[in-house]
Amino acid sequence: MTLENIKSEMEANVPGCVLEIVGNPSPSGQHSLRIDPAHAVAIATFLRDAEHLRFDYCSNVTGIDWPGKEISEKVKAKKLVDGAEQEVEEIRKTQTIGHLEVVYHLYSMEKKHGPVILRMRTEDRAEGVHLPSLTHVWRSADFQEREIFDLYGVIFDGHPDLRRILMWDGFQDHPMRKDYVEPDDYEYEPTAHDQVLERARQHRTVMGAQ
């Protein structure tokens, strides 16, 4: 049972779904399958219920933050230099918007195979991005989707009980996002080094101490 087979089967059985295999170049070679959020529930139900697949166990759900980054590429462009048209190389910079990604690890207890790894991406990293919840397909996703909601801020549509699970209800940030700014509580760092030392120095500067 290769990922290619599963992909082509899903394409045949779930009409209109968009799938993409994401390769993993490391020795483990755990390639994953990026699915489109619109068909996620249909795909998940198919993986769970298909006679020969039977992925009945969702062992892990986790999140990834892909922040937007600046890509610079060299482009040849025609420009007027001293009255004559010349070809000049210039660097064009583009900004990608970044994504939040949710990853599901699936195994089959019945058929004793797996894992199949599903990935889902949001459109962007804005506050309050939505993805479909797979808790109704695998109950074990319940708490872990709540954790992703808490730490990354992905809102799972259709989740039965979407509340924060680690932080308190009034908390506003999402600590696992790359752009999370933690509170400035570096007033006492007796063995500071590296990043912590940097933060402790910043704290001193802000507080106006030596």
């Binding site: 908390f171 760092e189 007796p190 402790a200």
Partner: peptide, 20 residues
């Protein structure tokens, strides 16, 4: 919204002076 309020109780705790 971002941390406990207050982050410490100044009656009980003062940051010990450390030469960083």
């Amino acid at each position: 919204a971002h941390d406990l309020e207050p982050p410490q109780n100044p009656e009980v705790w003062d940051a010990p002076l450390v030469n960083i």
